[in-house]
Write a protein that binds this DNA or RNA. Structure first.
Lengths: 354, 354
DNA sequence: TTGAAAGCGATACCAC
DNA sequence: GTGGTATCGCTTTCAA
């Protein structure tokens, strides 16, 4: 039998309250008594108050949850997600709070259960594609949360940290349009749930499933509409899973037709790098005939010479956690929009003459 | 006031037990009653049983803790740690268990407290340098744990997953020795606690503080002893923090003396890459005159052409978590030694004639 | 300063 | 199949 607080109390000959105070409110008893109690505890092998019991009684846990749409291992594989987590970790560390990473099972019911059962004081909701059900559970539990994906029906008081997805994407597309490109493919993750890798037809970007992807594709479309290329004139490609492999699968055969695109705008760097992989394998010479842009500016992007939109990943995580851990009194400050910047490298260039 | 299980029971006109059963043991009541209860719960906005209360009563939490020596943000910055975490995540996911990342404050007392207060069912102890105190707390709490660093006093029954550090390091050093190198520097993290970046004098590798580092340096030393270079003939460099920057600081001025080393053996890829950074800045021509080896074979190593010792990072994490989540009945199977392999790339070559 | 008593919110055993 | 009842281990007024 593991010793409990009671056992320590009995050993010393004081009440439970006093032992409790020895741990949690040292100022409530004499230093000498406290020492006696701590000594007895050591002797008995009492490891201090049981965290679960303490949490129950106190009403808070001392940890925040991070929710991912996809596999937990994805969180550690995707460079953007990793930097986001680094930011959350930094803030958590400063506050002496732990981070709970909650895996969401495939089955909706189980996933719900997972959110219901997480012992946390609040959630950072990272890019949950169809996050409404999760937010419902969190709200029902009365827990605070911070979301990082734009939501149409977000209340004004909802804590949020993110970027202007549309404007950011627009900047990349405008750059490419300015270089003269008109035959363009858009490549993104989670365009529609469960759609396979490859071309997809949608009547407009507003039909895109994932809100982040929707925002970015809207920005791309807007920029090309301004130079006379409407939505129907753009090739839309779905790359489920946001991996290099998915990107490669999505663009398979893309460049083999009679009038292949001269540029590919990707919704993430990982996807863009996948496209560069494919292009490199075609060994089309030193100057790539296809311009490619990414999104995020992950560390790998620089080495690959990828033109991309930079967003402060770690900062995003840090602010998300801080918004959760000590929310600003000012309501407006609970909605943080981070700056982005177009980073032009070598993966984009003028349309090759043919 | 948030609704409790009691409230639902009252609303439906049944006892608490029945409501509890509706959630946790559906087979204990009629489907119809269960539906009625769940409906009432929905109506009242009852989010399901409180996780903390449930954990207290049931005696387990449903999450495992991961302990890091250093900053939590380090865990997400170091490529090896990230892959380790990915492995833990994979196993956790499969078991429907959450992962709790526990930041350890600088102050010993606070760090102890953090381990005492973590609401988990067990710990993966990742490379805690001076981990004895942490293991003490964990044992006092009666929790299972898996360690990944070799420990001299590890009981035979202690769960462990790791590699033969000495033998792995030996293979790299033997390779370099075989190439003819005799003036060699050894570069490692945590050689001594709190030692600054740069040269260090120790009477032998057994004095090294961190057990992992100790194992690796011993392997390096052994290989060179065999070709007639004893410990005193090797230059030992400390690079606290295991970062590229630390490596750069540690090797500052190293190559400017009259008889600079022709090879640097690093205790990790990150450090080795830092050395390559420094060498690249010296722009000593296309064929580097200094051979460099790393350890781990992180993704970045391949691109850099780094000769290194590969160890299965993700596997290590996965197995650590599995050892924790369902330990094999066979005691011997609780001690897992993973294979390593020397990966020779372009960063090592014969000693340049001078 | 110290201690007695009342929960925190749920689960599980055991009768009915 | 259902409902009492004890209990999980601790914190926290409040009175002594």
């Amino acid at each position: 039998m593991k010793p409990t607080l009671q056992a320590v109390a009995d050993a010393v000959g004081v009440s439970r309250s006093t032992v409790s105070n020895a741990y949690s409110r040292p100022d409530q008893l004499s230093a000498a008594l406290r020492e006696r109690i701590l000594d007895a505890a050591r002797q008995l092998g009492y490891p201090g108050p049981n965290p679960t019991a303490r949490s129950l009684r106190r009403g808070f846990v001392g940890s925040i949850g991070v929710l991912f749409t996809s596999q937990l291992s994805y969180a550690f594989t995707d460079p953007f997600a990793v930097r986001f987590l680094a930011g959350v970790g930094e803030a958590a560390e400063r506050h002496g709070t732990s981070m709970l990473l909650v895996p969401l099972p495939q089955a909706q019911t189980d996933a719900r259960r997972a959110v219901e059962n997480a012992a946390v004081d609040g959630f950072c909701v990272y890019c949950v594609a169809d996050e409404e059900w999760a937010l419902d559970v969190i709200r029902a539990r009365g827990l605070p949360y911070v979301s990082t994906a734009p939501r149409d029906d977000a209340g004004a008081d909802e804590r949020f940290v993110g970027i202007d997805e549309r404007a950011a994407a627009y900047s990349a597309a405008a750059h490419v349009a300015g270089l003269g490109h008109r035959r363009v493919a858009l490549l993104a993750d989670a365009v529609l749930p469960d759609a396979p890798a490859g071309p997809l037809t949608l009547s407009g970007p507003q039909e895109v499933w994932h809100p982040t992807t929707r925002g970015r594709l809207t920005g791309f479309a807007d920029a090309f509409a301004e130079v006379g290329v409407d939505w129907a004139g753009l090739t839309l490609l779905n790359a489920p899973g946001n991996s290099r492999r998915a990107a490669a699968a999505a663009v398979a055969g893309l460049f083999d037709g009679p009038a292949p695109p001269t540029a590919v705008l990707a919704g993430s760097d990982v996807l863009a790098l996948g496209v560069l992989d494919v292009l490199a394998q075609r060994s089309d010479g030193p100057v790539p005939p296809v311009s490619v842009t990414g999104f995020d500016d992950v560390p790998e992007a620089a080495a690959a010479g990828l033109t991309t939109v930079r967003q402060p990943a770690k900062e995003k995580g840090r602010i998300a956690a801080e918004l959760l851990l000590d929310p600003p009194a000012d309501a407006a400050a609970n909605h943080v929009l981070l700056p982005t910047a177009l980073v032009v490298r070598t993966s984009t260039g003028p349309v090759p003459r043919s």
